[in-house]
């Protein structure tokens, strides 16, 4: 099955991004496809390579980047939400890209399921 994933909250303050990551990783392990993850609202903050969490904690942005590198997941950050919050190409972590909301709508149209992680 093809899953599209929507992440609506930022890292650390909320569990949404962690849950989305664990869902995506597990779905891939089980043989499903996760072609794209879309970051919206404060979810755009998950893309910042400037975050440096303590060594003994998970690095939310970095593990998204690694999932993308390992499995070809397209990590898309909403341009309008990013511009409001100061997220630009200059701060994006590896394998994230900025694009329009159409990329979110496309997930709903093309994939079998769209799963939202947020409050």
């Amino acid at each position: 099955m093809q899953f599209g994933i929507l992440v609506n909250e930022g890292p650390y303050s909320h569990q949404a991004s962690d849950s989305a990551y664990l869902f995506a990783r597990t779905a891939i392990e089980k043989g499903h496809k996760v072609p794209r993850v879309f970051f919206y609202h404060d979810g755009v903050y998950n893309s910042s390579r400037l975050a440096t969490p303590p060594q003994d904690d998970r690095n939310v942005a970095a593990r998204w980047s690694k999932l993308a590198a390992d499995h070809g997941v397209d990590l898309v950050v909403c341009v309008a939400a990013a511009q409001r919050r100061g997220i630009t190409d200059g701060v994006l972590g590896d394998n994230f890209r900025i694009s329009g909301l159409g990329q979110l709508v496309e997930m709903g149209i093309q994939y079998d399921r769209l799963v939202t992680f947020g409050d």
Partner: peptide, 15 residues
Amino acid sequence: DMDDMDEGSGIVKKF
């Protein structure tokens, strides 16, 4: 936002 999109799939879903 429409500029960079791949439209025309012809699929209409209930959102």
